[in-house]
Amino acid sequence: MGQEDISFADFIASSIHDMKNSLNIQVNALEKIALQCREQGDTPAFDSLGLVIYQANRMNVNLVQLLSLYKLGKSIYPTDISEQSVAEMIDEALLQNRSMMEFKGIVISVECDEDCHWYIDRDLVTGILINALNNAYNYTTDKIHVVAKIQDGFLELRVEDNGRGYPANMLIDDALSSSKGVSFLSSSTGLGFYFSSQVAALHKNGERCGTLIIENGGAFGGGCFVVRLP
């Protein structure tokens, strides 16, 4: 890697830093305004602000994913796979999206043992979860169920919704891409899936490697986003 690459990485990082500051303040101010709207009974304004906040959150998630992928590609991401509390990580992912979910009246339930610990990169896997929650937000009617359990030496994280489920062609696409490494970029949520599959693949234990699948079913018979990490 040459000098230019290092400074380009720095440049991207500092720009993203700047954008995230702005987004952080924007979202925060929007949330405050939204609360005022609700207190004043201005439901239409409240609802449309919910949509704006969702979009701002999405933008932030995209920024994080782009930067992480850039750094993973250059092998300069500070990957830190260490034992983490899975329940805590899920809690934090939900806290990040809480206001957004409240706007749409989505009820989220969690199924995870308090003392469930696993070897993960906390930030990257939180990124997967937030991405999955954002997707579920889109597809769900009003319920999302998050399940974490350890099974056969893998941590299985599931995000299930009660929407209509993934269309059949997406399910086929996914099966293909996970076996052949084909890019997800053709679908509208390409970045998120690509990011998640890259992060899953980064988690290795001996010969075993993390995987990502999407399927229909789960607690509500809707879409399920499933990550398994060794």
């Binding site: 500051n21 952080n24 979202v27 994080v64 806290l95 990040q96 809480r98």
Partner: peptide, 13 residues
């Protein structure tokens, strides 16, 4: 703490 931060997240942390 990675940005963005909101109040509930900061408090919980």
């Amino acid at each position: 703490l990675l940005k963005p931060i909101n109040q509930v997240l900061l408090e919980s942390r």
